[in-house]
Amino acid sequence: MNTTSDSAAPAASEHAVRTDDLWKIYPQDPRPVEAVRGVDLAVAPGEFVVMAGPSGSGKTTVLNLLGGLTRPSRGKVWVEGREISALPDRVLAQVRLSRIGFVFQSYNLLPVLTALENAEFTLLLQGVPAAKRRRRVRRLFDRIGLEGIEDRRPRKLSGGQQQRVAVARAVLGEPALVLADEPTANLDSATADALLDVMEQLNRDNGTTFVFSTHDPRVMERASRLIRLVDGRVAEEIVSGGAG
């Protein structure tokens, strides 16, 4: 077991992402909902971390907080040593663009773009020249079995293909951190395994840090560290011998 509280907090820059007493409270009648309650978390570069827990345990909210998609009600988040919780929207968007990749449960590819255009989307926003973008996308597509589908729109792709494109989109910008919210939830076993293989491979080969939220035991099995959330709190952390 390895918790962040069992030792003095390491310097922020030693972590891909770190949180300190993170709270998220949604104002609601009759009582505010405390979705995340004092979470302290530290994820080292290259880790393959899985957050598990029942529905409503706050997994997705923690991911959103880590990725700067929502602001904490209390506490702080650092990405590569930079505190992002109080950054202006515009700067936060830049941080997401350059340092954070997202993979969503329902793929969420942009339907008007082709597979290739979706995958290169973040590279394009980063200002990477077209030739270099295309080269990187094709190389990755070849690695993850997406060759030949570059010009297809998402509706012409299978769920597994769409999720692999989403993973490609998340990692191509070479982020410090990829946040994946239930990435296998809509996939059959074989497709889910294949996708996890891809992510493990990227983690291993590129040192990309992954933080998952999931119910899926197959994902949990591969984790280098498993964090169980219950009622918005970290209930348990287990270090295993998975990826990372």
Partner: peptide, 15 residues
């Protein structure tokens, strides 16, 4: 709006 949210998550600015 979901697509816009995804684009925002990927680092697209509101502008």
């Amino acid at each position: 709006r979901r697509e816009f949210a995804v684009a925002r998550a990927l680092g697209t600015s509101g502008g």
